[in-house]
Each structure stands twice: as structure tokens, then as C-alpha cells.
Design a protein around this nucleic acid. Structure first.
Length: 417
DNA sequence: GGGTTCGGGGACACCACAGCCGTAT
DNA sequence: TCATACGGCTGTGGTGTCCCCGAAC
């Protein structure tokens, strides 16, 4: 018996709503998300049947179990006998699908308990499945950039982007591909899987094939790295180069610590730091360098100043995560994904050498700008209130009475005076 | 080493108002 | 016991302000 539905608290939770950050049974899922147009946009997916807390990204066909990326890595890591298990990518969906429609998305949905369709039959038409969305979603790089933006901002923003930019030339993609490669042994992190696929609770990446790899985009989610190019001002080939050169740690010079066998120092510095929270929640990825070690490295004097500055901000970002955060929260950001990846590439840096310090400083500056706009632990309890706040006019950031003059209108970015 | 100044950054208040929730009828 | 009405409370986002902390002198 898994965890109970957070709504009815009676039935076993089956699906995970990313927008509500709640696990629901199928019946409540349909009831809750048929309430209004906004709730129908909520992106949902299956709940991990192992940890019962994170959204599932793959289903192990042989074990007949849906797993989040954490559990997938743990259970199907390259060093495990189950690494060769065949897996099926789990798509997320929105709208108000019937059980039959769910089975269309997930063939194994038929294994689920029956659902009373009576509540929401009239809403079935709202459920749409864009099978082509996989390709579209990961279209050309310039599109990816926009998509990344959208993903990073959540579904509502996807909608906005859809309207404002018409980025797909079609209506809102309802079924979004969850991340990670299909039929690829979990935990095998090679040069290709460096292209992270973060099964975030807000956004979903996809690494379906090599073509998609080439158009790699990092699901940055909470970190709000719109993309690496924007963040670090380097070429679109960065992801390959980036990871080959040791990832973000090399960018920040962290590998110095590990290269010099200074792990103990880094680890010891962790104690008492806020990053310890991360340690407590660190998944059991044996070869993943602990996040707290990464954190603590901010105290490492070997770091060059810009790197320290950047990484200080970086670690602050992590410290901003509360103890309530789950491991899945960490999946929301690319860096944490690197922490969680089976085999993080701690290679000696060459990226640093290939980039002038000026560009690095500018990258750090851009990162800080990004950081300013970052929000942590913001759980929207009432989407309707958010929707109102999002469109409410303001004066110096404060809400104003309807009809009064304003200096900021979220809808049109204009002023009334 | 101790005191002062400065800047960066986090925390928080403020605003309007729809909707939730408890209480009274 | 149930339905309805009422009033207080809550939460939502952008901006400004206050305060803390570390660095520099």
C-alpha cells in the first residue's frame, strides 16, 4: 500500500501533480483538476512507486514499477543487475483524461484501480495528446531556448509563452515527455548522458535520442538558468564541452579540491553549514560527489575569486532550500542533477583555460543577476490567487485598487501615467 | 586586535482582493 | 441537523526599506 491520496486521504495516490506538489489518487486527480481551466493546465504524471514522493519519469517494464529518477538511478544503476531492464518513458499530462485515455498515454495504466469516469466526462475533450510534441518540444536550438525559459517558469509561463511567442506554432503541448532515455540502462552516465534530463517537478526534459542530445538543453527549473549560453556566454556546444570539462565545478574551479585529494577538507568544512541539509537528503548515489562537499568547497582558498563569488552565490542558493525539500526538489536543478548523476565527470578543466577571465566575470555577473530573480521553496497553495496576483496592477510593487492609476501592469508592461 | 564605515544581500512589510473558514442565525 | 449569511483571515507578486554580516580601512 503506497501513500494515501493527499486529497481524499483514502485511496492510494497514483499521480503526482507538479503544480500542486501533491500526490493524488486518479479519482481525486480528475476531480481536482476538472475544477477550472487553470487547474486543468496542471501537469501531472505518475507517482514514483518506490519512494512515493517524487514524480515518476520511467517505468521499468520488467519490474512493472514506475520510478522517479532518483529511484531509477538507485535501482537501475550501471552497477546493479537491473541496469539492463527495459524501461518506458512516462509522459506527463494535463487536462482531465479518463482512465482509458490514460491508458493511451501509459499502456500500463490498465493495471491501475478503476476510476469513476462519471465526474468528468464532459471534460474529456480537454484532454489532448500531442504525439508530435516530443519533436516539437525539442525543436531547433533557438526554440529550445524559449522552451527552457518556459520550463523553468512552470506551466503557467509555458502558456504565456505559447500565447506571446507562439513558440510551437500550435496550441499548448499537453503531454510533455518526461525525461530520460528510453530503454537506456539507468545510471549509465556517459558522454551522452551528460546531457542532463531533469525530471523536475515543474519542468520536464527529454533525452530521447541523439538528435535531441545535439539540441541539448538543460532543464534548469529552480536554478532558473535559462540556458548555459545565456548564463555563461559561451557557445551552444557548451553542454558537451561543459561536461567534458568537468561541469559547473570546473567552471567554478572546484575540481581543484578534488583533484588534490582535498575531499576531507571539503567535507569537514561542511559541518555546521546550511549545506548540511543537502547532505541529509543526499540520495544514495555512491559515486556521486556529495553536494555538501561541493558546497563546502566555497571555503576552499584555492578557488579563484570570481569562482568563489559565483560559487558562494551558488551555495547560497542551495542553502535556501529548506529541510522540507525532497530529493526530487534537487532534481529540479541542473546542478543537483549533476550531484545525483551516477558518474559525475570530474575531469580536469580546460574550459577555464579556454575562456578569458573577463568572460568568466561577466558570466558570474549574469549568474548573479539570475540569482536575484530566483525563488525558492515557493509553493503556490492557491493557484487562483496567484492568477489574480499575476495580472494585478501595481504601484511600486504594491497592489492598487481597481481603476486607480498604476505604474506596472503585468499584462502589458505599461503604465497608466 | 578593536572600532568604524561601506556595500551586498536576505528578510520582511506593504498593497487589494477573491476565496477560504469559522461562527451565528 | 442542515442551509445560509456574515465577517475575519489568508495568500498572492513586485518593490522598497531595514537590518545583518563581512570586508576594508
Amino acid at each position: 500500500m503506497g501513500h494515501l491520496c493527499e486529497f481524499c486521504e483514502k485511496q492510494r495516490s497514483i499521480v503526482y501533480c507538479q503544480s500542486d506538489a501533491a500526490s493524488l489518487c486518479l479519482s481525486c486527480d480528475r476531480n481536482v483538476h476538472s475544477a477550472n481551466a487553470l487547474s486543468r493546465r496542471h501537469s501531472r504524471t505518475l507517482l514514483c512507486e518506490r519512494c512515493n514522493s517524487n514524480p515518476a519519469v520511467v517505468r521499468c517494464i520488467e519490474e512493472k514499477i514506475s520510478l522517479c529518477q532518483n529511484c531509477d538511478w538507485i535501482g537501475h544503476g550501471s552497477s546493479t543487475p537491473a541496469s539492463a531492464h527495459k524501461k518506458q518513458t512516462i509522459n506527463c499530462y494535463s487536462g482531465c483524461p479518463s482512465a482509458a485515455e490514460l491508458s493511451g498515454i501509459w499502456s500500463f495504466v490498465l493495471e491501475f484501480p478503476s476510476v469513476d469516469d462519471s465526474n468528468c466526462e464532459q471534460e474529456l475533450g480537454l484532454m489532448s495528446i500531442n504525439e508530435n510534441s516530443v519533436t516539437d518540444y525539442w525543436g531547433p536550438p533557438e526554440t529550445n531556448r524559449m522552451i527552457d525559459l518556459a520550463v523553468a517558469s512552470g506551466m503557467d509561463d509555458v502558456e504565456k509563452l505559447d500565447k506571446s511567442n507562439n513558440w510551437m506554432g500550435s496550441s499548448t503541448p499537453v503531454v510533455k515527455p518526461m525525461t530520460c532515455s528510453v530503454d537506456q540502462p539507468a545510471g549509465s552516465v556517459n558522454s551522452k548522458t551528460h546531457k542532463l534530463c531533469c525530471p523536475g517537478t515543474k519542468g520536464l526534459g527529454l533525452c530521447e535520442d541523439d538528435d535531441h542530445y545535439e539540441d541539448f538543453t538543460v532543464d534548469d527549473i529552480d536554478m532558473n538558468f535559462e540556458n548555459y549560453e545565456e548564463l555563461f556566454g559561451i557557445s551552444q556546444n557548451l553542454p558537451e564541452q561543459f561536461f567534458e570539462n568537468g561541469g559547473i565545478d570546473s567552471l567554478f574551479g572546484l575540481q581543484d579540491i578534488f583533484a588534490t585529494g582535498n575531499n576531507s577538507q571539503a567535507e569537514s568544512a561542511t559541518e555546521g553549514s546550511s549545506a548540511g541539509q543537502v547532505k541529509a537528503m543526499q540520495p544514495a548515489c555512491s559515486n556521486a560527489v556529495s553536494a555538501d562537499s561541493m558546497m563546502s568547497s566555497k571555503t576552499e582558498p584555492n578557488l579563484c575569486l570570481p569562482a568563489r563569488q559565483a560559487y558562494s552565490s551558488f551555495s547560497h542558493s542551495f542553502s535556501g532550500m529548506t529541510g522540507e525539500s525532497s530529493a526530487g526538489d534537487y532534481q529540479d536543478c541542473v546542478v543537483s542533477s549533476m550531484f545525483l548523476m551516477g558518474e559525475p565527470p570530474w575531469y580536469p578543466p580546460s574550459l577555464e583555460n579556454s575562456n578569458p577571465s573577463a568572460s568568466r566575470d561577466s558570466a558570474v555577473m549574469r549568474y548573479k543577476e539570475k540569482k536575484k530573480t530566483r525563488k525558492f521553496d515557493k509553493k503556490i497553495r492557491y493557484a487562483s490567487r496567484k492568477a489574480r496576483a499575476d495580472v494585478r496592477r501595481r504601484v511600486k510593487g504594491r497592489f492598487i485598487k481597481a481603476g486607480e492609476s498604476y505604474d506596472y501592469d503585468p499584462l502589458c508592461q505599461t503604465r497608466s501615467f
